[in-house]
Amino acid sequence: MAEGSALEVATAFLEAMVDTSRVDAAERFLAGDVHVIINGTTFSRAEYLDRLETSDEQFEMVDVTIGTSLTAGRRAAFTQELLIEHRGTAYGVEPGHERFTECAASIVTVEDNLITEIEITHDPTATLEALGLLSADPTTEKLRDQYYEILNRVLRHNLRNKLNVILASVETFESDPDAAAATIKEKTAGLLSTVEKAQKIEQMAIDTPLSPTQFHVTDTITEVLDQYERHHSVSCRCVCPDESLELRSDRSLFQNILEETIQNAILYTNTETPEVTVTARPASGQGVVELEIEDNGPGIPESELEPLRQDQETQLLHGSGIGLWITKWCVTRLEGQITFGTEKEPTVHITLPNLGH
């Protein structure tokens, strides 16, 4: 085969991605010792093929257009616009938006009609991963599946019930306006709370990339507890024998865990003033923090805990809200472990590791 220019080989490579698949094209055009550099990170041929294989399971390149190009010897630099089609359902892909375009810029080095180096300065696969649309991590996929399952139940069951109560109260407004107004206000607040929690899941527990930072555990816990004492009828206490205790984790998700467990303590209490104690200490194992959240209530009902243990909800088995799921999802994303308290022992146990850079 006559040796083509670097741009001709690169163009044939991209067209093969459209005609066959990205994996087939890569196997055909990439040299065995190729270096693939994506946003500054270098991948071997095998590693890049793994990325493409994962992407091909969900996304297909429909078309490609080469834009501005420059060739110098065995190297070519060019921009390209990719038309990509999503094959199934994924978080963030709305009906009718299954096709979308991604622009990328590449520099390729070619020898004997094989690409020996390719540098991608903007990679659609990396963009999809950052959006949470593509992941080879089964934990992330499981969280996304649970998100849809729980949100579907909340929208169909909880919201419908609250709306029915509001409509019934409107009909009785003339006969007992004070009672009807109080009921409408209560149920409307519940609806707003549910929507806010759903947004919290979307923004914090599913698609937002983690942002690990080093922070003081005691200061962070105290900040959350003080906020709840100011705005709720609740008594909070932080017990941290080692005030210098630090954790490298996503601070927002850490705060979210505390907020949801405190809200659950308020929700399930039968006392006039809920009392919540958060204890933090180093756990066994280097770089691990153990949290215990205890309250003076009767504990979380078994009917609320069973779906969490089974990792799913059904029409016959579901809890009344999504706060417990938010807590569990956040702990899972932070690579931790959680054990919910029972009606006999109302203490939530959480262990969290230090996250990498």
Results as ranks from 00 to 15, higher is better:
304 E>H: 04
332 T>H: 06
41 T>K: 13
322 I>A: 03
311 D>N: 09
83 L>N: 08
195 V>L: 13
93 V>M: 11
82 L>V: 10
300 I>A: 02
117 E>Y: 07
216 H>T: 12
161 N>I: 09
47 E>K: 07
80 Q>R: 10
52 L>M: 08
95 P>G: 01
173 F>V: 14
303 S>M: 13
295 D>L: 01
303 S>Q: 13
204 M>Q: 13
71 T>E: 14
334 L>M: 10
300 I>N: 04
200 K>C: 11
118 I>C: 03
352 L>K: 00
208 T>F: 12
265 A>D: 04
9 V>I: 15
135 S>M: 08
115 I>H: 02
135 S>F: 07
316 L>P: 04
10 A>M: 00
211 S>E: 15
287 G>K: 09
287 G>T: 10
77 A>E: 11
142 K>S: 14
344 K>V: 12
132 G>A: 02
114 L>F: 14
3 E>I: 10
210 L>M: 08
80 Q>C: 04
221 I>H: 05
113 N>V: 09
201 I>A: 03
142 K>L: 15
227 Q>C: 11
39 N>I: 10
333 R>Y: 08
213 T>M: 09
350 I>H: 01
266 I>H: 00
85 E>W: 13
217 V>E: 02
71 T>R: 05
273 T>V: 13
304 E>M: 03
209 P>Y: 02
270 N>H: 12
16 A>W: 08
81 E>T: 13
12 A>E: 10
160 R>H: 13
182 A>E: 15
39 N>W: 12
334 L>V: 02
225 L>S: 01
302 E>W: 04
302 E>N: 09
340 F>W: 03
227 Q>T: 15
353 P>H: 06
215 F>D: 05
293 I>F: 07
339 T>I: 15
340 F>R: 03
126 A>Y: 08
248 R>S: 11
43 F>G: 02
68 T>H: 08
276 V>D: 02
73 G>N: 07
132 G>S: 01
54 T>M: 12
34 V>K: 00
45 R>C: 02
68 T>C: 04
261 T>G: 03
62 V>D: 09
1 M>T: 14
23 V>G: 01
298 P>M: 10
54 T>H: 14
148 Y>Q: 09
82 L>R: 09
247 L>A: 00
284 S>A: 14
289 V>P: 01
305 L>K: 05
98 E>S: 04
46 A>F: 13
307 P>E: 06
254 F>S: 02
290 E>K: 11
136 A>N: 15
228 Y>I: 11
8 E>F: 00
148 Y>F: 12
237 R>Y: 12
318 H>N: 13
239 V>P: 02
188 T>P: 03
112 D>P: 04
311 D>T: 09
212 P>Q: 03
192 L>R: 12
35 H>F: 14
151 L>Y: 07
116 T>E: 09
344 K>I: 11
192 L>C: 08
200 K>S: 11
290 E>S: 07
108 V>W: 01
242 D>C: 01
262 I>G: 00
299 G>F: 00
92 G>K: 07
125 T>A: 05
103 C>M: 15
3 E>G: 06
14 L>A: 00
187 K>A: 02
249 S>L: 06
297 G>M: 06
347 T>R: 08
7 L>E: 00
309 R>D: 03
91 Y>A: 03
